[in-house]
Design a protein around this nucleic acid. Sequence first.
DNA 1: GCATGTGAAAATCTTCACAGCA
DNA 2: TGCTGTGAAGATTTTCACATGC
Lengths: 206, 206
Amino acid sequence: MGYHKIPNEAVRRLPIYLRGLLLLEQGQQNVSSRNLAEFLCVNPWQVRKDLSYFGGFGTPGVGYNVKKLIKQIRKILKLNVIRKVALVGVGNLGSAILVYSGFRIYAYEIAAAFDTNAKKIGRKIKNITVEDVSNLHTLKKRKINLAIIAVPQDAAQRTADALVKAGVKGILNFSPCCIVVPKKIKVMNIDICTDLACLAYYIPAS
Amino acid sequence: MGYHKIPNEAVRRLPIYLRGLLLLEQGQQNVSSRNLAEFLCVNPWQVRKDLSYFGGFGTPGVGYNVKKLIKQIRKILKLNVIRKVALVGVGNLGSAILVYSGFRIYAYEIAAAFDTNAKKIGRKIKNITVEDVSNLHTLKKRKINLAIIAVPQDAAQRTADALVKAGVKGILNFSPCCIVVPKKIKVMNIDICTDLACLAYYIPAS
DNA sequence: GCATGTGAAAATCTTCACAGCA
DNA sequence: TGCTGTGAAGATTTTCACATGC
């Protein structure tokens, strides 16, 4: 590998590979790019290329050692320690995220939840007691530097500002709008509606 | 505009433009690519380029007529009629989707919900009565040809097969796995976890 | 022989600069 | 003057073919 810049898209695929590998972990010691790709509905050369950006993890003629590759990907994605995440907004979507177990395999743990609604504050969901958003400033002390925004659109920027002030370094934004933060802060946006809104485009009129 | 192939990414941005335009609709008659872009945190030339793939909707020196552009984008995305969608899986995520109102602006309406859990079947959420998945075959008769999959991973493929059999033409898949369908069927995948799992990668060790 | 890793080609997408029109 | 629409340049990503190592 030369000194390529690593494509963002390659990074985004690593968690998918990781999930596949975890499912294969029990069954087999080694996996070829072909096997893994087939399992995940992607191309073998894409798997190889993506992994090669980070270093040669495989053995020609054999494939990749499953356990070793899992460890490597975890290291690349910095998932080798448990990552605490704060959730802001315990509405429908927020609640669903809070109880969702899919994050676990990536060693993410929702460690705090915040809302403005007095009725929700104090309620306990999955061992997490919902706190008032005015408590956000405590995140730094609690060593939580990642957050999920699941508040209504008009509260999104305000929430982002508070999070940045609280020392948060990465934000996953479910609100259907952009949020402006200092360049150092990494934001990833998920807009549930956007993809649905594109679906009809691809469907021929019947 | 020549006969370019339209970038997928451009299509995916149209719903975002549409949302911005709907917010601007009340306030102003015309909008320049610069205004709209600023509002949405994107680049003006990207807005212009994207729109130009579909035809010249603007007036040099003036900008775009907001109402007219809304109409145009709706037409492109085939959102000018109400699109009925079926939801399969009324768990935490499914329920959140069911009550989520963000789809409305895109003229999508969740018109049916399905689950396997006997406790959930018959329950009414937001005017939708949850049905047994064995009823999926009725979708064709009901003219529902889009579906959202929000079932656990191990049920995803089975669900997809049933949906295809029921005549569904487009699927939004929230299950964290790939589903295999005939080429004619359009699938869009949203994996909530993947983006979160990438977040730490971008955050410098502190 | 078999599967990885990688340079190079191809495809795709983004950015730019500016001609042309209101 | 101001803003669109677009060809061309630039950047990024995907695909391929095959040299290399087990």
